[in-house]
Design a protein around this nucleic acid. Sequence first.
DNA 1: CACTAATTGACAGTTACTCTCAATCGGTGT
DNA 2: ACACCGATTGAGAGTAACTGTCAATTAGTG
Lengths: 203, 203
Amino acid sequence: MKSEADQQPGLRERKKARTRASIREHALRLFREQGYDATTVDQIAEAADVSPSTFFRYYPTKEDVVLQDDVDVLAIGSFHSQPAELSIVAAFRAAAKDAFTSLSDADLATFQETSSLIFTVPELRARAMDEYSRTINVIAEAAARRSGRDPNDFAVRNVAGAIVGVIMAATMPWTDWVEKSQPTHMFDRIDAALAHLEAGLPL
Amino acid sequence: MKSEADQQPGLRERKKARTRASIREHALRLFREQGYDATTVDQIAEAADVSPSTFFRYYPTKEDVVLQDDVDVLAIGSFHSQPAELSIVAAFRAAAKDAFTSLSDADLATFQETSSLIFTVPELRARAMDEYSRTINVIAEAAARRSGRDPNDFAVRNVAGAIVGVIMAATMPWTDWVEKSQPTHMFDRIDAALAHLEAGLPL
DNA sequence: CACTAATTGACAGTTACTCTCAATCGGTGT
DNA sequence: ACACCGATTGAGAGTAACTGTCAATTAGTG
């Protein structure tokens, strides 16, 4: 048996983490080189030198290799520690800023890459939207705790919905210029969207 | 050749429509009886007395049998004919009302059924979210035309995002009481959400 | 140096979906 | 009636994403 909580990762855990990272890296590289659909799980497994079975043990679906919600988890964490005098939207805006600035350059690079994948592959786009909906629930819960209301309060949920809605609109440029990798950084657009919402969505 | 536009459907078209409806009805029935995942396309095809190939000719994926966006298409159509003095949100609210009241009882019943399916099956939920994102684009475009702005205008897209966001939050009660089929009708919740947004999301 | 539990790989099976090709059916002109 | 053409269909083979099982290996423990 193990004592209780792992103080040091231990060789086993480190190996797992390495395998996980290796699978992800090889997968993203292959997606970049051949496209998402053209890349099979078998190819990824072979490139990462593991069996296909092992691939599915680390990532329940092929989609999950791309969909890694590090960022919004960070944002929610930071949301809780925002000063109480900020409005919900303002607090979330500050939290988003925290989350983005805490990312390393490498993290940011893969974030950009996975983002553009999500924008282009319909399958992934769909799943990402599902994550958004989960985010509504999380925000609503966090916001409810801040304002001392019920998490199922209609108004609170509505505000959470509006926040996620404008983020969706801001991070979702797949109308025309999808390919010309927007010079404006993702974060700037999210920040502007939240500012606009904070101001009451003036036209 | 045919003259130009079909004035009367013609036997061929009617048969197609009947086949399409039959597939859908049998599929929804089987989903209700056995669950979505437990029902195979082969079973649906057999029940509807067509070949599996034919199933895929009518519905590109199994998910598409459930995801039928009649309602929001109607809403967008009605949106264009709303009086110009209404705000974007108010106009959309009126359009949603139009769309819902134009549905027959049978349509409404299947709408309720597909809705609850979408709420419970993760696969479908994800796809539905993708439809929501498409809706943002459509609303943004329609709203841009109303206000004489560019469809890519940041503020316009943001408002569209907020509209879809509050609709998502309102139609998405899968937190606790998912199963106890909300007495409040879907439309009432959407309407309340839009009203709340129209009022500036007061807490 | 055993012993145990976690991790892994090989393998067989299911199912959604694609493609191709021949047969059939609806609509039109003679 | 009859022939013709294009649309619709069914059959069947093939691909790839998963799922489940079972034996072999490997990390951590006494």
